[in-house]
Design a protein around this nucleic acid. Sequence first.
DNA 1: CGAAATTCGTATCAGATGTTACTATTATCT
DNA 2: AGATAATAGTAACATCTGATACGAATTTCG
Lengths: 162, 162
Amino acid sequence: MGRSGVARGNAAEAAIAQGGVELDLQRYFPYQLARLAEQVSLAVAEVYSERFALTRQEWRVLAILGMRPEIATKEIGPLTTLDKMQVSRAVQGLESRGIVGRKHHPDDRRELIVSLTPAGRALYRKIVPLALARESKLLEALTADEVAALDRVMGKLSAALA
Amino acid sequence: MGRSGVARGNAAEAAIAQGGVELDLQRYFPYQLARLAEQVSLAVAEVYSERFALTRQEWRVLAILGMRPEIATKEIGPLTTLDKMQVSRAVQGLESRGIVGRKHHPDDRRELIVSLTPAGRALYRKIVPLALARESKLLEALTADEVAALDRVMGKLSAALA
DNA sequence: CGAAATTCGTATCAGATGTTACTATTATCT
DNA sequence: AGATAATAGTAACATCTGATACGAATTTCG
């Protein structure tokens, strides 16, 4: 029988010869995923960051507000995967630039209700088509079947982790 | 004819009635991907962070060193997707704990050559099986075909972005 | 050869981020 | 009701991170 390690690279073989297991970072799924997510994040950030000076957190809050005319601050976290401090800072940033307004909930004065200002809504209308176009451009690299498969598998993985 | 927006949710319909396009963050691919990557990153960080007090950057450098007995610092960045400052700090952190050693390149004293110490190699041998097991556990949620498809599609997307 | 430019790695400082603790308000429990 | 606990949001502090600039070593080019 042939010696072991025939199908592996030299480094792997060397590691195994030393009695160890080895890990190829380039083929390690968590690393691949982190790298891809970083690339995509950078590509998308061009849309909201460079042209509109929004942070990623502010952009997420803005996206949520586009669908919900009014929303309690405490609801934003779960919807955007931001912690409450990140939400607080993002909303403050948006408010300081006149993109959102805040008021107290009438029945619970601890809560703040956030909504887009007219300027905020105008910004939203400008930015969303660009963001959607960027998404389309990214996914153009794939066939429709591949996009569907990716979507399904990512959902499955995400659900398994939750 | 029915009015438009029949197949959409109320929020979408409301946005469209206002003449705007809308974006559902939960279904926006870049957000889904970022969220999944974050979940996976946290799951994997349990392995190296909690038990061995390594940062993500240090873990990546360690992973590279497991395959390359010696490596120039300047090569680490491209292999790990870290910038030179992150590499510098990660290597310093590893050195301060006796996990790696450094020496000058004999023919170019600007460069530093990094290698695992015996303690570093022992750590590597302990940690890699755990990291691989964690990867397997994550991917258990998928069928073999799904894993293959995911790998292929991620590679395709990543290549298109590079 | 010797000045200028380039490369490698790091110090330094500014800004971003996470953690803890606090204030204000409301809910709960006796 | 009144004390106690819980919740929403933020301030304050410590830490992490990124950008710039620098010193040391080497290379390039006049």
